[in-house]
């Protein structure tokens, strides 16, 4: 039942998007976010949409999956749209009833806000769809490594992140198992009032915490017995190397961002 949760929703593949270096993908995502916020004109939005469609098509991620990730924030999108339609003050009033007024500007603004949200969600989830969590933390570590000079524990934070990510599926599986076991003893997680329901989760949470601590302890022992002592002088199994395609992708994205900015300046 908990298996349907997609988190760190990596979708393995071998497309161009999949193969781009994770560090570049992170930068590209940042550029993409900037691009979305720069866009103001229909042509600008069109350009971004075309880019996004290209990325999605290339990655071979089923569009159904992407629509599913949008569905979870559907309420948020609708809320934004409704709020902007009714509460943006505009000059060309199209419709008015009591305190509700709908103006042309309001509709335009609502549409652009909705587009922005959709672009941001789809664009950033393309990063997590096509990059494995481990590569992603490696990339974050690499990009933030200059902070090491300021004694910022970049490696340790990245390690903590990858361990946390690694254990999400394990803990979900564990939760599922403990739930089944307690249900087999007649535990009821579904009925009763709020107080009873919260109380019914105790038989689930205590074993879950106990096992999380046990796993943490075992992992610490395993790491220590292999002489793990942090990032200093540590070499890597996966060495990140940039290829020509990474620079090309970066150049293309930069050009696209410039295009969006130009479109905005000229108001096209």
């Amino acid at each position: 039942m908990l298996k349907n949760i997609t988190l760190g929703q990596y979708f393995p593949g071998n497309s161009l998007i999949h193969r781009i270096d994770a560090r570049f993908k992170l930068i590209l995502t940042a550029l993409f976010i900037a691009m979305v916020f720069c866009a103001k004109t229909p042509a600008g939005y069109g350009l971004i949409a075309a880019f996004l469609i290209f990325v999605v098509a290339d990655s071979r991620i089923p569009p159904r999956l992407i629509l599913k990730s949008l569905r979870s924030i559907l309420i948020f999108i609708v809320f934004t749209a409704v709020l902007n339609v009714f509460f943006t003050k505009g000059e060309t009033v199209l419709f008015s009833w009591r305190f509700l007024t709908v103006s042309r500007e309001g509709i335009v603004f609502a549409v652009s806000m909705v587009l922005r949200i959709v672009f941001l969600i789809v664009g950033t989830s393309m990063l997590t769809y096509t990059t494995s969590p481990i590569l992603l933390t490696d990339a974050i570590e690499a990009l933030f490594s200059p902070l090491k000079k300021l004694r910022f524990p970049v490696h340790e934070l990245a390690m903590m992140m990858s361990i946390a990510l690694r254990f999400i599926p394990t803990l979900i599986e564990e939760t599922d198992k403990i739930m089944s076991a307690q249900k087999s003893r007649g535990a009821d997680f579904e009925s009763g009032n709020l107080f009873r329901r919260v109380k019914s989760f105790i038989p689930l949470l205590i074993p879950l915490f106990v096992s999380a601590f046990r796993r943490a302890d075992e992992l610490a022992t395993a790491m220590e017995s292999r002489c793990y002592r942090g990032g200093d002088g540590r070499t890597r199994y996966r060495v990140m190397r940039s290829a020509a395609r990474d620079w090309v992708a970066l150049g293309a994205a930069a050009a696209l961002t410039a295009g969006v900015v130009v479109l905005r300046i000229f108001g096209l």
Partner: peptide, 29 residues
């Protein structure tokens, strides 16, 4: 739920499902 009491299932590594303060309370669950 009533069939859960007639067919008792013991899962693999059932010791990981214990949660009560005392053994007695846990068996009584």
């Amino acid at each position: 739920r009533r069939f859960r009491f007639r067919v008792g299932l013991v899962f693999q590594f059932p010791e990981y499902q214990l949660f009560e303060e005392t053994v007695e309370k846990d068996i009584a669950f």
